[in-house]
Design a protein around this nucleic acid. Structure first.
Ligand SMILES: [Zn+2]
Ligand SMILES: [Zn+2]
Ligand SMILES: [Zn+2]
Ligand SMILES: [Zn+2]
Lengths: 162, 162
DNA sequence: TGACTAATTGTTATATTATAACATAATACT
DNA sequence: AGTATTATGTTATAATATAACAATTAGTCA
């Protein structure tokens, strides 16, 4: 495997419009395939979540959504979030009560999050080793793993040099 | 290492008073050593948190605390929680917004939590392998780890057989 | 097409989790 | 005792999330 920083931490220099469009396109296809409805509100919400690689709070989302959709209320946002979460188009960062776009929406996966406390950006890893060790060590306690929350705080490559 | 379930999952059959007293005693000593004040409110709060191996919500804590302390208000609880968290006497389970007693308060440690979705009990692991793999895989992205949240949901040995 | 059904969104209210701000009290230090 | 520091009391409010029911929209099919 390559030893370059995960793509997300290139965010300073990359063409982020490509990220957004790619995410929306993938979502479009996934929903079509699953025959579920990727409505306007859901699209707008996903697009806002992808507006950066930083996790976004539900009420930030609401404030922004209201610029286009004057009558938006909390349930509007939470329903869209629920839909996007259920379909693995986004993830919730539990330790921040915030939401980020999923980098592998077309793939069943177990991910880990690197959260930079410098620039507040997030990278999503999908590391088989981490998953394997967790599952194995839990099994040593006789525990059967169903789901994992792995959120790692620290400094991204860029922020280490600041 | 032994391959028995972690102590916490013995909760059905164990002498839980021993857990409570041990936790309070350790806390007492740790606070004395650090020359920080283990006040009545902090003791009561820690004792309530240790009343089971299930994570407890801040407002549950408040309701219970009020039985002894009629004028308790949210800041009372949150201040006690802050103190206990800062001194590693308890942990917050981020995915539940709930709090559990720490099993290794006298030791600097990085822990992982096994959360049983059957009986809602929690076990705290302090597994060097998990920590090591996470740190190593993060480093492959150039990421410097400062802190970890690892919360694993699934079924404990007992609940697998129900 | 138009009636029927299911899914989505609108709307109001409220529950739950957590903190701000300032007053008072208890403790530690000289 | 007098002062500084830490802890607690008290009131208000911020931030996160859901319940409940009404209205609308989209899909189904006679
Ligand atoms: Zn991007
Ligand atoms: Zn950074
Ligand atoms: Zn611990
Ligand atoms: Zn169990």
């Amino acid at each position: 495997m390559e030893k370059f920083p995960a793509p997300s931490f290139y965010a300073h220099r990359h063409n982020h419009n490509a990220c957004i469009h790619s995410a929306l396109n993938k979502a479009q296809h996934i929903c079509a395939k699953k025959e579920i409805r990727f409505t306007r509100i859901r699209q707008q919400t996903l697009e806002l979540i992808w507006s950066s690689h930083k996790p976004i709070l539900a009420y930030e989302l609401l404030r922004t959504l209201r610029r286009e959709k004057h009558n938006a209320e909390p349930p509007t946002v939470y329903r869209a979030l629920d839909f996007l979460l259920e379909n693995q188009l986004i993830h919730k960062i539990e330790s921040l009560n915030a939401y980020v776009g999923c980098h592998f929406p077309d793939k069943d996966h177990i991910s880990q999050f690197l959260i930079c406390t410098g620039c507040h950006q997030i990278a999503e890893l999908e590391d088989a080793n981490v998953n394997k060790v967790i599952t194995r060590q839990a099994a040593r306690s006789g525990f059967q793993v169903a789901q994992q929350t792995v959120e790692i705080r620290g400094l991204c490559p860029t922020c280490q040099n600041l």
